[in-house]
Design a protein around this nucleic acid. Structure first.
Length: 637
DNA sequence: CGCTTCTGTCATCTA
DNA sequence: TCTAGATGACAGAAG
């Protein structure tokens, strides 16, 4: 599970990078907390790929601090704003493919000790505390403009600025003169150069109040009207997508989408202090997105689904959604098929059994000791076993009227028609049971004076007639005959308890006869019970075998899906590497030189910000690894 | 003759 | 307490 989650996270990072190229900001910090340490943010300027939306600032300014940050309506409002902005961005023919970023750390040839900040070498190990401290110095803009006052830049770590080298700070100081308002209002913001973005982003003090007016304009009521329909449709769509595609416990609560170009690089707020406070509040509000999403399941899922819908569309359409859908479909259809087959089998069994009964209607007169034995007794007309008492009573009258009390033709012919109605087992099994049952000889045989010796020969249908006489008598039948009991074994077994008791009382049997009658009844019922029990056992075995086959098929299917997913994840990882190289090739360091992709990498940090992290020198790790290996070897020795 | 399968029966438990 | 049903175990017959 962890491996799968890790793969998922990696894919998420890759998606974040990818979306950042088109100006969509994805906040996945909460999800990545368990795997990646929060990173200092980068990407400044008008064309920054990770430009934070100013809605959080608006939340503070418009709604004020009186509104609880976890207010669902408030969160929905700002989320709607983000969605609207996303729609606007999508409507633009241009995409912001140019990334501006702070050079987080420049790896010198001698080592990382040249940096003022001792945490620069920490890289990924930078903690959230640092991010939190940095957030205090962030400008009010609320965007991913991670510029900060110069004075504070030199003080210590704060966001991306925490990793700025001295040279970079100097460059910023020299280029402070660039007005940020121009950047904010200019339509050519996306064409700003990287260094320009850096310098502008390092100018929070020049932010005019006009930018707030721009924000207010962006939050016009008309936009909200348009937004409602768009958001509703989008949420519904994405809600269904994410619910179907991600059925597992994937908690991407903080996924957010924001537009980049429309809001431009933000010029910072007037005062860095207030900026820091507001930004801190902003960050705190962001951090509560998880809980907000919990309180607002539908909307949270919808918001979270925004980037994930892209994920599914870009990478995992087949693997996640399609595969799961196929799985569910197959499982459902398997059950439906089973149900349908069961019902069909029942019908077929009944039909087949009727055929068997027709073919053997006059054959196994005494072979009804199977499941049908109970209902087959002496009921010439009535098909139900519940009517056995009345039918048996009439039969008793006939029997009592006769010499031996057994009228052959009347007794067993009708009983065959009763069997098919009362049986609950498949025809094959029932036929087998009837075929092999010899314990209860037919009443006509009992009625005959001359009894054949028990030879237990199974007579087929064509043997009906004189050959029935040769059928063997069961031991109980012989005993009953020997004891002059005027009832057949079939009658003794099938008659109800009350009737049986009445027979015992009314016929003034001797104790031996009563004992024999009880034994015959007990053995007869137990024989049927044993037959049923064995049939059930066989059915259970058959059912288990079918279950094994079904589970094996399901296992094979899941293995195929697993292989497909692994293949997709590998492709995504490869794509991520290529995107990282592309991004790094567009970045410049303080001296204007392009970053070496071999020495730097992109890391997703807190609040979805991306930081350029230096790749650790393999020599260090290798040396450490060698040391540890040596220690291990020494310990072994 | 030995093995397997089928069937009946007994003993026991449970409802 | 009795009865019916279920089931494991055993034995005998048959292939």
């Amino acid at each position: 599970m962890q491996i799968a989650k890790k793969c998922f996270t990696e894919g998420l990072i890759q998606l974040t990078i990818f979306l950042s190229l088109v100006g969509v900001r994805v906040d996945i910090d909460s999800y990545l907390t368990g795997y990646y340490s929060p990173l200092a943010e980068i990407n400044l300027g008008p064309s920054s790929a990770y430009t934070q939306t100013p809605f959080h600032v608006l939340r503070d300014t418009l709604d004020g601090y009186g509104v609880h940050p976890k207010c669902p309506e408030l969160d929905y409002f700002f989320a709607s704003r983000r969605l609207l902005d996303e729609v606007r961005t999508l409507g633009s023919p241009r995409f912001h493919t140019q990334l501006n970023a702070w050079l987080v750390h420049q790896v010198s040839s001698t080592g990382p000790s040249t940096s003022n900040n001792p945490d620069t070498s920490a890289g990924l190990e930078s903690t959230e505390n640092e991010a939190g401290e940095a957030s205090e110095h962030l400008p009010v803009r609320g965007q991913d403009v991670h510029c900060q006052p110069d004075s504070e830049l030199a003080q210590g770590p704060c966001g991306a600025g925490a990793f700025l080298s001295e040279d970079e700070v100097k460059i910023k100081e020299e280029e402070e003169a660039v007005p940020l308002t121009q950047l904010a209002d200019s339509s050519t913001l996306e064409h700003e150069s990287l260094l320009e973005g850096i310098t502008t982003l390092s100018e929070p003090d020049h932010v005019p109040p006009a930018t707030d007016i721009n924000w207010n304009n962006l939050l016009s009521v008309a936009d909200l009207d348009v937004l409602d329909s768009l958001v509703t449709d989008r949420l519904l769509e994405l809600d269904s997508d994410i619910s179907s595609a991600i059925s597992q416990d994937v908690s991407l609560h903080d996924a957010m989408v924001a537009s980049v170009g429309a809001f431009g690089p933000a010029s910072g707020s007037a005062e860095s202090r207030t900026v820091g406070q507001q930004q801190r509040t902003l960050l705190w509000l962001e951090s509560t997105n998880s809980s907000l999403s919990d309180s607002l399941p539908g909307m949270a899922v919808g918001l979270a689904a925004l980037p994930f819908a892209s994920v599914c569309n870009l990478t995992g359409n087949m693997t996640s959604q399609g595969a799961l859908g196929d799985c569910l479909d197959e499982a459902v259809f398997d059950q439906i098929n089973q149900l349908g087959l069961e019902s069909l089998d029942t019908i077929d069994n009944q039909l087949n059994y009727l055929e068997c009964l027709d073919s053997r209607a006059f054959e196994d007169l005494d072979s009804d000791s199977g499941l049908s034995l109970e209902s087959s007794y002496g009921c010439p007309v009535s098909p139900g076993s519940s009517e056995m008492s009345s039918s048996s009573s009439s039969l008793y009258c006939e029997e009592e009227g006769g010499a031996t009390g057994y009228s052959s033709e009347v007794d067993f012919k009708p009983s065959k028609g009763i069997i098919d109605h009362s049986t609950m087992w498949p025809p094959v099994d029932l036929s087998e049971s009837v075929w092999h049952d010899h314990s209860y000889s037919s009443p006509p045989l009992l009625s005959r004076p001359s009894l054949s010796l028990p030879c237990k020969t199974e007579e087929p249908e064509e043997d009906t007639g004189p050959q029935l006489e040769e059928r063997e008598l069961s031991r109980d039948e012989m005993r009953a005959r020997a004891m002059f009991i005027p009832f057949s074994v079939l009658q003794i077994v099938n008659m109800p308890v009350e009737e049986f008791m009445e027979v015992l009382d009314s016929h003034s049997f001797s104790p031996e006869q009563v004992t024999l009658l009880r034994d015959i009844r007990r053995r007869g019922k137990n024989k049927l019970a044993a037959q049923n029990c064995r049939k059930r056992k066989l059915d259970a075995i058959t059912g288990l075998e079918e279950e094994v086959e079904r589970l094996q098929a399901q296992r094979d299917r899941l293995l195929r899906e697993k292989r497909l997913t692994a293949k997709t994840m590998g492709a995504v990882a490869h794509q991520f590497k290529q995107l990282t190289r592309d991004v790094l090739s567009r970045l410049r360091d303080a001296s204007g030189r392009p970053l070496n992709p071999e020495r730097f990498t992109l890391q997703c940090g807190a609040n979805g910000r991306i930081a350029v992290q230096p790749i650790r020198q393999p020599a260090v790790t290798t040396s450490a690894g060698k040391k540890t290996d040596k220690r291990k070897k020494e310990k072994k020795q």
